[in-house]
């Protein structure tokens, strides 16, 4: 009988040890990394978030609700958004939200610094063009001319949260800066929540916080223009910085052998003739990188370099020319270069 008891004890001991091993392995597989990832749809694009934090799931939700809030501020097409209402105002002066005021202040600075080469009042023109539906329609010349007459950022004045328009037909399009503003705001929130490692990707506007869980910098691929999405030209390293590209390949159509892309010249109302396929701006200021990437395309490489120098901007730019050759400006840095 004793022998039987001992036997039972021995076998039960084995079972418990095995159960312990199984339990440990289960814990090990789920606890090895606190990386939480999710994708969503905001700002008319796909949003990808990676957060290394034990509260990752709750923080992902918080990020997405912030995206929703900001989309409801900056969307030009959603009838419930603040921008939509501003564009269809009934009075010359509108009181705007803090986010709208902050983003507008930054945006108007770039309009002024570029003397209107970058102009957020381009909405009457940009709303005529359709680069998304697959149609290849060039807007009527008379319609473009009439819309162009409404484009002038100097008719917009911001004083605190008071936004005043000199003209009733001035309409705003913050597409060139709002995503940069949004990623900066998401990053700030995550920092305040104590997160030390995250990646925010708002439709190709990539912004990083800290290092990956492996202790290395995040790697960001640079899309190869006109190639399959996801095919990259090169890769850069990023930590507490943003990597934001603008390019003529992102939204475009071809008609009669000519390419019509979405980066419109506020002076002509047509896609800007440029020597660049793409410009990628790396900095610690997301809104600046967003605006500057578009400004680089609008200016072309030489003028963009002069502009960056004259403004004393602390940025690194990767210019991609029409042959998809990359030039670093001011120079390739080993901190950023992954190769």
């Amino acid at each position: 009988m004793n022998m039987r008891k001992n036997l039972c004890k021995a076998v039960l001991g084995c079972i418990f040890s095995l159960a312990g091993v199984l339990l440990l392995s289960a814990c090990g597989s789920s606890g090895a990394s606190d990386l939480h990832e999710a994708e969503g749809y905001y700002f008319d694009t796909d949003v990808e978030l990676k957060i290394n934090d034990k509260n990752g799931e709750a923080l992902l939700k918080k990020c997405f609700s912030l995206c929703e809030e900001l989309e409801n501020t900056f969307s030009p097409s959603s009838s419930s958004s603040e921008l939509y209402k501003i564009n269809r105002r009934t009075s010359d002066t509108v009181t705007v939200s803090d986010d709208m005021a902050d983003c507008l202040e930054e945006a108007l600075t770039w309009c002024s610094r570029t003397d209107g080469a970058f102009d957020i009042t381009i909405y009457p023109v940009s709303s005529l063009w359709d680069f998304r539906s697959g149609k290849t329609e060039i807007p009527d010349e008379a319609a473009i001319d009439s819309a162009l007459a409404k484009v002038d950022y100097t008719k917009v004045h911001l004083d605190g949260n008071e936004l005043t328009f000199d003209s009733p037909d001035t309409m705003l399009d913050l597409g060139g800066i709002a995503k940069g503003y949004a990623s900066a705001k998401i990053k700030k929130m995550l920092k305040e929540e104590g997160v030390s490692s995250a990646l925010i990707n708002l439709g190709g506007n990539v912004s990083t916080l800290g290092l990956k869980s492996s202790g290395t910098k995040w790697t960001v691929g640079i899309q190869k223009p006109f190639a399959d999405r996801g095919e990259t030209l090169t890769t850069v390293k990023s930590s507490d910085s943003c990597v934001i590209s603008a390019g003529i390949y992102e939204r475009y159509f071809e008609k009669d052998g000519k390419l019509y892309h979405h980066i419109l010249d506020p002076k002509t109302g047509y896609p800007k003739e440029t020597d660049l396929n793409q410009a990628t701006v790396i900095s610690t200021d997301d809104a600046m990188s967003d605006a500057l990437s578009t400004i680089c395309i609008l200016y072309g490489q030489e003028k963009a370099e002069e502009f960056i120098k004259s403004q004393g901007l602390d940025v690194t730019v990767l210019f991609t020319d029409k042959n998809n050759n990359i030039t670093w400006f001011p120079e390739e840095s080993s901190d950023l270069s992954a190769s």
Binding site: E48, V206, K212, V220, I222, G230
Partner: peptide
Amino acid sequence: GGSIVCLPNRVILKIENAAVTAERPDAVTG
């Protein structure tokens, strides 16, 4: 690894448990 997104139809193709390779970036800009 990687993902393909169809924004209008809200469809995402995504690789889970991707093999760890040094070459694949964490995100793609542009």
